[in-house]
């Protein structure tokens, strides 16, 4: 049990750190997906621990939502890429105080 949770926390942290340090929008987005999937691991591990299905059902919901999020995210990133020929989040700096 603890092993699964540790792994899930580790993956979640890797994802979170990736979002913060990586500069390519696609990679940042992949890191977010990694965080969601780390959460799925936690959900199914807890479902096993508690012996009910809520966690497994939740994992399915998360997968569907993540798929929807991918389509929206890629659409936005592609539209930016077509304009600027780059997906670096550092170059998106027109909006400033």
């Amino acid at each position: 049990m603890t092993e699964y949770l540790t792994l899930s926390m580790l993956l979640f942290s890797i994802g979170a750190i990736g979002v913060l340090v990586r500069r390519n929008a696609i990679i940042v987005f992949m890191c977010v997906e990694l965080m969601l999937n780390a959460t799925n691991l936690a959900f199914v591990a807890f479902a096993r621990q508690h012996g009910n299905l809520d966690g497994q059902v939740a994992a399915f919901f998360v997968m569907v939502v993540a798929a929807a999020e991918v389509t929206i995210g890629l659409a936005i990133i592609v539209s930016i890429y077509r304009t600027r020929r780059t997906t670096s989040v550092d170059d998106a700096n027109l909006l400033k105080a």
Binding site: L5, F12, G15, A16, V19, A25, V28, F29, V32, M35, L36, A38, T39, A42, F43, A45, F46, Q49, H50, D54, G55, A58, V62, E69, I72, G73, I76, V89
Partner: peptide, 20 residues
């Protein structure tokens, strides 16, 4: 989008821990 997805991942992990 990027920040919103990032924050909803935190929300979700919180939900997983509350479930745990």
């Amino acid at each position: 989008f990027l920040l919103g997805a990032f924050s909803s991942a935190f929300f979700l992990y919180g939900a997983a821990l509350a479930y745990g």
